[in-house]
Amino acid sequence: MESLDNVSLSDTRSLRRTDVWVGLWFGVVTLIGLLNALHRYLNNVANGIPASFTFNLIEELTGSLSFGLMLPVLFAAIRRIRQLTHRWMRYACHVLLVLLLSVLHTSLTWGSRIWLFQLAGLGHYDYGVMFWRYVMEFPSDVFYYLLVAVVLWLIDRYRTAQRRELRAAQLESALSEARLDALRLQLNPHFLFNALNAISSIMYEHPRVADEMLARIGELLRATLSAKAQEHSLSEEWRLLALYLDIQRARFGEQLMAHIDTDPALGKAQVPFLVLQPLVENAIEHGGGDIRKVEITVQRCDGNLEFRVSNPVALGGGNTHSGHGIGLSNIEARLKHLYGSHAGLRLARDEGQEASVRLWLPYREGASA
């Protein structure tokens, strides 16, 4: 039923566009005839010649409408001629087409005037010697033919340019999406390698802990690999981060202290998929010391969503977060692709006491939390 509704809606829109074009066509050719009739009538009045506006109106409307009736066929023929490979064939076809157009236009004008003059009670319409009428109308038909050909060429060029721009935008979007997918694929093996390396270091001494870590890793990987979008809600990001922290707690036990400070009202905010895990992983791995403390805060500020992941500096004054690594460079690249200059990542260190990563991006809510 949904597909039928979509087809019906598409057909309705197509019919509306057709009605608009038909109305525009009729309005233009009628306006041309009306203006020409008014010009002839006023010219006769100015010259003191007895004038009938109805007479002039029928003559000019029959001429413009007769030409307008042939426009759809004329458009199709001109477009077909453009596709011919040889130039001489195109020129020959244009000449034949304008000759045929002029003969048909003059004949149709003549026949319609005879009928309409009798219908309006103006008597018999005398069009003069038809041979000379055909010759007389030919120059004006050539002019209007060239005008139609040029306008049609401009319209087609404009539409072609629009299609190219649309295609280029689609290709650019597809390329950007492919790059983002590549970055996500790079991130998952990086996380998996680090997690498996941590398991291998404890699997003989603490097999139960290693087994628990493997179970958490499997659950987290199922969630990450099944994701299709580049963004999801902040509440879902917290859920994935909680799985990762469970893995690290199984590894470090009570030595790991992680605190998350957030507002539940921000749960619908859209954030890049798995954007916090590399930051938290970096803080845990480089924090050092017997107790590894990680503080994660998020707030909305001036239309942005700002994250801050901090940890104490390792003993000995080591430069925490000294390198971006795969995780942080990955985040920077993803932020650039998704938000351009409206998002960023900054590393900081406070007087040898604390190292932190500040991340900001535009605040935007999704349909659901």
Rank of each mutant, 00 (worst) to 15 (best):
L154G: 03
Y363C: 08
P362E: 10
A265W: 02
N194W: 02
Q170T: 09
S341D: 14
A37H: 04
H342W: 05
N43D: 13
I291K: 12
Q162D: 07
L104M: 10
A92E: 04
E165H: 11
L101H: 07
G344Y: 05
F53N: 07
L241Q: 03
N188P: 00
N319F: 10
L220W: 09
P189W: 03
A77R: 05
C93H: 12
H324W: 07
S10A: 12
Q299F: 06
Q118W: 06
L220A: 12
Y158F: 15
Y363Q: 10
V20D: 11
S341A: 11
L101Q: 03
R334S: 13
E237N: 06
A314R: 06
Q162F: 03
I217K: 01
L305V: 09
T320F: 01
L338I: 11
Q230G: 05
V142D: 00
T224N: 07
I58V: 13
H337E: 15
L38D: 02
D156L: 08
A195D: 00
A195K: 00
R179I: 03
G327H: 01
C93D: 04
G218F: 01
L42A: 12
V98L: 09
Y339P: 04
Y134C: 02
L69P: 02
Y41S: 05
E165W: 06
I296S: 02
W115N: 01
A367M: 12
A92C: 07
L225Q: 08
M136F: 14
G33I: 07
L34N: 05
Q270R: 15
D263Y: 13
A314D: 06
V95E: 01
R13W: 14
M70T: 06
D290V: 05
K293Q: 10
E295I: 11
Y41H: 15
A367H: 14
L42M: 15
F131I: 11
R308A: 08
G325P: 04
N197P: 02
P50L: 06
H86S: 14
E332I: 05
E2H: 08
V357N: 00
L359F: 04
D141T: 15
V151A: 12
